[in-house]
């Protein structure tokens, strides 16, 4: 009993504390500004250099023509290579992570 006293004290103290984790989705999670959740594509800025397509490690970028690129977020691993290497900042990340869907078309960012 003496050996376990430490952990028993810890357990009793924990009874009066709030839960350490949050109960999503009842409580909203606060996203850090550095979180890479979903891509944003600004087609007006695009110059059609195809750099994003070239550096993507998983082949999630499909170039159609200048100002028209499709990003498959089902394949995307959120590494940010396309964003870091875009010369005109036409791609960016936002923090909107609640994007689960059964419709595959919703995973295509145009």
């Amino acid at each position: 009993m003496g050996d376990n006293l430490n952990i028993i004290v810890e357990a009793i103290a924990s009874l009066f504390k709030k839960p350490y984790t949050k109960r999503y989705p009842k409580e909203k999670l606060k996203q850090d500004p550095r979180t890479n959740a979903w891509l944003e594509y600004y087609s007006k800025k695009c110059i059609g250099c195809r750099m994003c397509e070239r550096v993507c490690p998983v082949g999630a970028v499909k170039f159609i023509k200048k100002g028209k690129i499709e990003f498959d977020m089902g394949k995307c691993i959120r590494c940010g290579m396309c964003i870091d290497n875009c010369p005109v900042n036409a791609i960016g990340f936002n923090q909107n992570f609640e994007r689960a869907s059964k419709d595959k078309k919703k995973f295509i960012v145009k």
């Binding site: 500004p33 550095r34 979180t35 890479n36 691993i77 959120r78």
Partner: peptide
Amino acid sequence: DKYTGGRVHHN
């Protein structure tokens, strides 16, 4: 999470 924006994969 604070430093990298990711809990598991940091990039």
